[in-house]
């Protein structure tokens, strides 16, 4: 059996926002079929990392490398990264007035498939994905995220992920602002998308989403760095003991 190649890997990533370093050298490798979680307190740099990986112009990667399926993505614009197979579910999805969910997703999918590609299956695809995520069919004609509740926005982010079917999905605080039913629906959507060929990177403050989406590896991020990595039990321990525990543990280790 030949050795599997990494699906997504980044090495020694440093990110600056307005000249200030917010991510200070992080590395990670996701193999096909894996789910990783980055957990950390507010301000630890985890959202900055996901924005930078997606190519947000305000989050500059000043050092480091990132490869998606062997392809260097650092020099790519965010639309190229998307077409290469990277997806970011936004923490705060923006409203786009006048652009309906259906038209937006059609344009997005068309750009993934190519300008002249056949789109005759699109309506059916959208309809079935919406049904699977319990999104009201009326949302297809509504303007994207305009007047949506927090839960509706997150569900529509997952809808976009299902339709675009990326190689790697970065999910930035997708669980925030969801009640338990919405959380379950969203988690089901993520699990339905997940297969042996793609990868997921969950970025979250709390571990509750991890009850439904099981990570293979959990990374704890504090002050711009990964300070600890471990199996799913790490998330439970964090839930129990809080982030201070990691902080103290690290300090103790330094003090030994």
């Amino acid at each position: 059996m030949s050795k599997k190649k990494p699906l997504f890997e980044f090495k020694d990533i440093h990110v600056e926002v307005e000249g200030k370093e917010v991510v200070k050298g992080v590395s990670l490798t996701i193999m096909p079929g894996e789910t990783h979680a980055i957990m950390g307190p507010n301000g630890s740099g985890k959202s900055s990392l996901s924005n930078a990986l997606m190519g947000h112009p305000s989050y500059e990667i000043v050092k480091g490398e990132a490869y998606l399926d062997g392809q260097n993505i650092i020099e790519m614009a965010s639309d190229e990264r998307s077409r290469a197979g990277l997806f970011l579910a936004f923490q705060y999805p923006l409203a786009v007035p006048g652009v309906s969910v259906a038209n937006f997703l059609r344009s997005a999918l068309q750009s993934h498939r190519g300008k002249d590609a056949d789109m005759s299956d699109y309506r059916k695809l959208l309809k079935s994905e919406m049904a699977a995520l319990s999104v009201d069919p009326a949302f297809a004609t509504r303007y994207l995220n305009e007047g949506f509740s927090g839960g509706e926005k997150k569900r529509v982010e997952i809808l976009q992920m299902s339709v675009l079917n990326p190689k790697v999905a970065l999910l930035d605080e997708t669980d925030s602002g969801l009640d338990i039913d919405a959380l379950k629906t969203v988690a089901e959507g993520i699990n339905r998308y997940h297969n042996a060929d793609n990868g997921i990177l969950l970025v979250t403050h709390y571990q509750r989403l991890l009850n439904y989406v099981k990570p293979d590896i959990v990374h704890v991020m504090m002050n711009g760095k990964f300070v600890k990595s471990g199996g799913p039990e790490l998330a439970l321990k964090l839930e129990e003991k809080g982030y201070e525990w990691v902080e103290n543990e690290n300090n103790n280790r330094v003090g030994v």
């Binding site: 614009a77 965010s78 998307s82 970011l88 750009s111 675009l164």
Partner: peptide
């Protein structure tokens, strides 16, 4: 950025 992050040039 939101639109570009979905693959739209």
């Amino acid at each position: 950025f939101y639109l570009q992050a979905r693959g739209i040039a």
